[in-house]
């Protein structure tokens, strides 16, 4: 499955990565080679094989519905780039 620049552009947009034109060309080359390598998968017959998401056949454990966390806002916001009145600040969101 050939990779085109439009694919890289679209992925960069979805992943919110700014990519310059030069970089885009470089990524097309690198990613194409990676995908060529990945395409070996297509030669394998996997008819009837169930996908495996986790290496162990374990099931989800459930947590008791208890409040175990306390307010740590100050500690958590110490590593935040922009806060005011306890809120994280971002450029204005237009709905």
């Amino acid at each position: 499955m050939a990779l085109e620049e439009s694919h890289v552009r679209r992925a960069a947009h979805l992943a919110r990565l700014a990519v310059s034109d030069d970089q885009a060309n470089g990524f097309v080359d690198d990613l194409s080679r990676i995908l060529d390598m990945v395409d070996q998968l297509q030669s394998l017959d996997t008819e009837g094989v169930a996908p495996l998401a986790h290496p162990l056949d374990a099931t989800q454990r459930l947590r008791a519905d208890e409040v175990t966390e306390t307010n740590q806002r100050d500690a958590f916001q110490r590593c935040a780039p922009a806060v005011e009145n306890g809120l994280y600040l971002v450029p204005r969101v237009v709905e």
């Binding site: 409040v67 175990t68 966390e69 740590q72 916001q77 009145n85 306890g86 809120l87």
Partner: peptide, 24 residues
């Protein structure tokens, strides 16, 4: 109407000060 959140032990109570019920 759980007491704690779906994936964490933070409270779900309505109306708290901003980000005081947002755990790690």
């Amino acid at each position: 109407a759980t007491r704690s959140k779906i994936f964490s032990g933070a409270s779900t109570a309505f109306g708290a000060e901003p980000n005081t019920q947002a755990c790690a």
